[in-house]
Design a protein around this nucleic acid. Structure first.
Lengths: 168, 168
DNA sequence: CACAAACGGTTGCGCACGCAACTGTCTGGA
DNA sequence: TCCAGACAGTTGCGTGCGCAACCGTTTGTG
């Protein structure tokens, strides 16, 4: 064993990246979910469904589960809530009657139109604690880890790089 | 409204940093908790308690809750499990009988000694998907966000900068 | 054509979580 | 001195979650 590897044989949780990542994600979630819950009575799964359906108008539960990496039961329950509130609508496809096509209702579209600018504003406010250069570095690392763990499709990986350019 | 701000008035969840952070944290947690659960039958709160008690031998539940930012009931239940399994011990302090001082038992120390190298190994394996330069950038951004959201004490902030140097 | 396997989506169940309320202990000011 | 409030830690309760099992539909293979 080299002196170098023994030097850091101890563990400090405050420096342990997986822990820090989890703690940070919880804090960011809480920071944002104040909007969803307080103003629109959406929890996080519901917000994700709204966001996904809003950007893809011929969306299925399956597709939402895959792109958000939420468990399909979580998606199913979020959809059930949104249906009950009349924020989304569902039609079964003639081609395959197992699938249900989802889209925003008119009231859902109204909420979506209010929700999206607020969410983007919060994201910008959050990331404004970094310089543009730091942000690029951070996003790059994020994308590397996503790629390593296989949590983002190739489309998302391509998108993420260009995204940094349009942020402060 | 400027053309620039209207250009990105739409939201793509796959590019939305808070969502990506959460998704990544979940993936990293699952990646790591395979060790804790499979090999040592620890869940994440229990692992965090072990890690905290192991690095600070005169630790209280209160201190664990503050430094990990876990809810005190979560900490309390994790401690109860570890006590039942004989991995930690507890003595009430004469100075203040509300507080209970925690420390690893001998079997807890044995587990800790096996656990820490594995955890550090996994961290290194995870972060090896980045170059040293990318890693520094990523850790810097992490620290900025932690500072902005107030999730890390000043000690942790100081530590995090120097940490990057000792990683690949 | 038939039937088994795969698939989209839902549901029953057990479990961990956070909130609020609680117990027991300490502290500070009237 | 006393008592109201703060604090460490625990517990009852409602809720959301993931797993596994399930239903109805489609697909593929003999």
């Amino acid at each position: 064993m080299s002196p170098r590897s023994t030097r850091r044989a101890s563990l400090q949780l405050a420096r342990f990246v997986p822990f820090r990542l989890n703690r940070l994600a919880v804090a960011v979630s809480q920071h944002l979910s104040a909007i969803y819950r307080g103003r629109f009575q959406l929890d996080i799964p519901e917000w994700r469904v709204m966001a996904t359906v809003g950007q893809d108008p011929r969306c299925t539960a399956q597709h939402i589960a895959a792109s958000t990496r939420m468990h399909k039961t979580r998606v199913s329950r979020a959809i059930a809530h949104l249906l009950k509130r009349g924020l989304i609508e569902r039609v079964s496809r003639a081609a395959d009657r197992r699938e249900m096509q989802l889209r925003l209702s008119s009231s859902g579209r109204r909420m979506y139109a209010q929700l999206v600018p607020l969410a983007l504003l919060r994201e910008r406010a959050l990331l404004a604690c970094m310089s543009a250069r730091e942000l690029r570095g951070f996003i790059t690392g994020l994308a590397r880890l996503e790629g390593f763990l296989g949590v983002a499709g190739p489309a998302a990986a391509r998108a993420s790089a260009s995204h940094a350019e349009s942020l402060p």
